[in-house]
Design a protein around this nucleic acid. Structure first.
Lengths: 191, 191
DNA sequence: TTCTTTATATAACACTTGTTATATTATAAA
DNA sequence: TTTATAATATAACAAGTGTTATATAAAGAA
């Protein structure tokens, strides 16, 4: 019979995620994980096929964290529906810049776009209902707002701008109201 | 007397920049530069104090390229003034994604923000004049548009969105017109 | 107790990085 | 022609990477 397991798959994944959160993707090395767990590098390779496997698992866990945060933000009612998911995205970039970089600033050429189409459609539907927009008008409005949210998030994640909650919130509101006026008076392609 | 110089500082800088343009910052290594120049790694160290010195020089040259492109775009009159610099930024992200990442997606916490305040002030002045905005209204409008431009540029640079010139241009126009309406009717802080 | 199993530790491997010590060698002055 | 100079080339170093071969040892089965 073998000795008891001292280092589980979850231990390794947690340590790896912690390294990425604190120091970025580059800091995720076999020896750094081992040092954090006070063990050798061996358990990594008995729990994952190789480092790329661990990296993939970290990516998935990071996304799960993001999804969880976004869900909580939507529930909380802290923001009106048109900006709740946007603010969640922005706050994720602020609180977890390294995870944000991993998820949303990496190269994604040729990757499937996983930007939660279902969620977008829900927001678009709400916008249509409230403001009497065509589908196309609402979709365009949503697209522009989303680009804006992405721009803000990247600025905060890279430290190019210092985060001020009111500032971000005000920008989104200005953009929402301004663009709403624009798209209401713009003949949308019917769909 | 020493033998003739075969590898100049400019040769090295050009090779280094080419590597970064084609394959990204990570590809900039001593041996990669040497291979491209068909020489040893030695000339690098007689022309630069170390690799960080070369990296700094590459950064400066990349910025010079960007500045040159932006200047040309402003001159060309291809776009109205409110969007000329924005479109130049976006097209730089499309044509030179690796250089864009180096300049505008790296971590800049604690770095001086070099986003050409003079240029911004010029655009703000033009916006005021044309649309009868207060300084603060025009500055806010400019800020939001800039965030939007940044968001689009990052999306294109990371391959998250495929670039379509008309799409980008239309988004900027919609945003400009929509936000203009918003800020014209918003009491700006006097300044 | 002895033995089998296997999770872990140790240590080595092949490779890549920046950097430097040493050896060549082309050039022009002497 | 000889010689001093310095721009290169060669080769090595230390440090760091992922990965793997081997050794150790803990835990229950026999």
């Amino acid at each position: 019979m073998p000795p008891k397991v001292k280092v589980t798959r979850d231990d390794i994944l947690d340590a790896a995620l912690a390294l990425v959160r604190e120091e970025g993707t580059e800091a995720l090395t076999t020896r750094a994980v081992a040092a954090r767990l006070k063990c050798s590098t061996q358990p990594i390779f008995s729990n994952f096929p190789n480092m790329d496997g661990l990296r993939r698992a970290v990516l998935e866990k990071a996304y799960a964290m993001y999804a969880q945060r976004t869900f909580a933000a939507m529930q909380s009612g802290r923001f009106p529906p048109y900006k709740a998911s946007g603010m969640a995205y922005i706050e994720f970039a602020v609180d977890e810049p390294q995870l944000f970089k991993l998820l949303y600033m990496r190269d994604r050429t040729g990757k499937e776009k996983n930007d939660d189409t279902a969620e977008s459609e829900k927001i678009i539907a709400v916008m249509r209902e409230r403001n009497g927009l065509s589908y196309d008008q609402a979709r365009q409005l949503h697209t522009v707002l989303w680009v804006l949210v992405h721009g803000l998030a990247v600025m905060y994640a890279t430290g190019f701008q210092e985060y001020k909650a009111e500032e971000a919130s005000e920008i989104l509101t200005d953009a929402y109201l301004g663009l709403l006026g624009r798209f209401q008076n713009k003949e949308g392609v019917v769909k």
